[in-house]
Design a protein around this nucleic acid. Structure first.
Lengths: 227, 227
DNA sequence: TGAATATAAAAAATCGATTTTCTTGAGATG
DNA sequence: CATCTCAAGAAAATCGATTTTTTATATTCA
């Protein structure tokens, strides 16, 4: 987030922040679960201070909730919130897309092509999920990177993380996945030809499809009487 | 036993977070300044741990920057960033306004009227700046409160805080201020009559005017050769 | 002289221990 | 039998001290 890029010499709090962030997005904790701080401390082999600093950052980022004197919990997952996230993501990304197409230069085009190539390579290895996830995130980043608004990109990134938390919990849908993969290539084409209207429509559809899949993460809440 | 209003029940880290947040927005620290942690500790009379947790939250929120092993600094103020913030604020607030008008119910109308009344009362006391600032923030919150998107409101709040950091540093402009105050009342009228198009135009203008005033915060950087 | 290096002082980050607050459940009360 | 009280245990929050890293200053060497 705000920590400077140098990777290896990172502070313990930044390392544990990144690790926890990924684990939260990957769904390694149950929604609504209360985090036992000393258990985390043992599991991740970090001290209390860096751990607590990371938890505080995650709470400010929206991947954790902090309750007054009773620690941190994983936010509940509600269909209503997923819809909110997806809807807003659509609007913000379409906004950024327009600006990115208008301001995009050859360097942006190159980076986009490169990111797309990496994503296609990752498509070929269905077993290496984390590599694909990273390539996918970077592709969407590259698509909007030239939009010129630091704050817009920041919010989009945050929404993307929130969205993925839901999507990753949903059962995979190979048929839709195939369409989504194809759309990435089409987005690149439209980017190169600067076809804003078509690209917006496609991106809207892309997110809508992905949203539909992600909705599978919440089964309808059973009435209280059920076992 | 007299339980003082929840505030004292808060954790030290939350109290110092709020205090620091306000002081940052009010411009009590110079832009670009490096924060000396132990000085803050003495000044605010808090321990190191709660202080560091608050600083971490503020960095995640965007009111501080954290540099790898060299602590926290106040973000620089750049005209370019103010323009980004104002532009995005306009787009997000207009988006929220539309949804708020569509979903607004009588309770929302009441709260908006109440917030506006408090703001007008605060207008009458030009000496009590902080009261006005709070009433103003709450008015704008009330205007959009019924929009139904938790995440949109969250981002708008964040942008508002960023924007105010610039605006509060700029020299006051009584002429523009008078127009801005009048616009608050007009926004209420348009809210009650659900005139979305007119309200969007007015809100756009409202932010544009305020943006113009806020721009006075950065005097053009003198060339290096100057004394 | 000027670049490079060593070193002392300062600041940040982290650790281990202490204090505070919540939670649980046994026993008292109505 | 349900509710309330209170102490013991668990967990969170905070403190004080230590370790690590940076910064400033002085010194050496070409």
């Amino acid at each position: 987030m705000t920590v400077s890029p140098s990777a290896s010499r990172d502070m313990a709090s930044s390392r544990i922040f990144e690790t926890l962030k990924q684990d939260l997005i990957r769904g390694r904790f149950a929604a609504g679960e209360k985090l036992a701080i000393s258990a985390l401390k043992d599991h991740y082999r970090v001290g209390l201070s860096p751990l607590r600093e990371a938890l505080n950052r995650l709470a400010a980022y929206g991947l954790l909730e902090q309750v007054n004197q009773r620690g941190f919990r994983v936010p509940a997952m509600r269909l209503e919130e997923l819809d909110d996230i997806a809807g807003l993501r659509t609007q913000l990304e379409c906004m950024a897309l327009t600006q990115a197409f208008q301001a995009g230069d050859p360097e942006w085009e190159s980076q986009l092509l490169a990111a797309h190539h990496r994503l296609r390579r990752a498509d070929e290895h269905p077993d290496r999920v984390e590599e694909w996830e990273q390539a996918h995130l970077r592709f969407h980043r590259a698509l909007l990177a030239s939009c010129g608004s630091h704050w817009l990109l920041r919010f989009i990134e945050q929404l993307h993380d929130q969205f993925d938390r839901y999507r990753r919990l949903a059962p995979p849908n190979p048929a839709v996945r195939e369409v989504l993969d194809r759309q990435h290539g089409e987005l690149v084409e439209l980017a190169l030809s600067r076809d804003i209207a078509a690209a917006r429509a496609l991106l809207d559809d892309h997110i809508r499809l992905s949203h539909g899949v992600a909705r599978g993460c919440c089964q309808p809440a059973p009435p209280d009487s059920a076992v």
